[in-house]
Simulated assay, not measured.
Amino acid sequence: MDNNKVVENIYLLVIVTLISVLQNAFFANKVEKECKPKNTQHTSAFERVTCANRNCMDLYPTFLAVMWCAGLCLSQAPAAFAGIIYLVVRQKYFVGYLGQTSQSTPGYLFGKRILSFLFLMCIVGILNYLLTRYFGSNYKEYVDLFTNAASALLLIP
């Protein structure tokens, strides 16, 4: 397999990964700004921003793993689309957490739904591979059609 073919199969996933790195830098910058000593005590804003950052970082490896697995095992376009939506939701969660923690709940629940969708894509991709390998039945075209249609449903709150 030549390098152009490999890049063609993963470039959308790479773009989403790089955007997520920029988002992590934004989160770190917010924590750093709140960390600057205005007074000797940590404020409630500092507590909220560090908690929101920690929560986002806890799920970050899971997000990357399921997005990449879904993109490689099944289809990169729906996986990358779900990844972009997840990053938007994670931003909403982070900003909502800075206001009041109750404002972050919709972002948290929506993010769980997107991670579940990516996980399901991984499972379907692996099952399709096993069916193809051991039984000669390739359902990739049907699965791709369904996955592309289902990824648009992620936009429904």
Rank of each mutant, 00 (worst) to 15 (best):
E8F: 05
N9Y: 01
N9R: 09
I10Y: 07
I10W: 06
Y11K: 07
Y11N: 07
Y11V: 02
L12T: 02
L12C: 03
L12I: 03
L12R: 00
L12F: 07
L12W: 06
L13C: 10
L13P: 04
L13G: 11
V14E: 01
V14Y: 06
I15P: 00
I15E: 04
I15T: 10
V16H: 01
V16K: 05
V16G: 02
V16Y: 06
T17Q: 09
L18K: 01
I19Y: 04
I19H: 01
V21K: 05
V21N: 03
L22H: 07
L22P: 03
Q23R: 07
Q23C: 02
Q23P: 00
Q23V: 01
Q23T: 00
F26A: 04
F27V: 15
F27Y: 12
A28R: 07
A28Y: 07
N29T: 03
N29Y: 14
N29K: 09
N29L: 08
N29V: 08
K30W: 02
K30M: 07
V31P: 13
E32G: 00
E32I: 03
E32N: 03
K33N: 11
K33S: 10
K33D: 12
E34M: 09
E34N: 13
C35R: 15
K36D: 05
P37W: 01
K38D: 00
N39I: 01
T40L: 08
T40F: 06
T40M: 04
Q41T: 10
Q41L: 14
Q41I: 05
H42R: 11
H42A: 11
T43V: 08
T43F: 08
T43P: 07
T43L: 08
S44D: 13
S44G: 00
S44H: 08
F46R: 12
E47A: 13
R48Q: 12
V49D: 15
V49Q: 12
V49S: 14
T50D: 10
C51M: 13
C51D: 11
A52R: 07
A52Y: 11
N53K: 11
N53G: 05
N53E: 14
N53Y: 15
R54T: 15
R54I: 14
R54G: 08
R54F: 15
C56T: 10
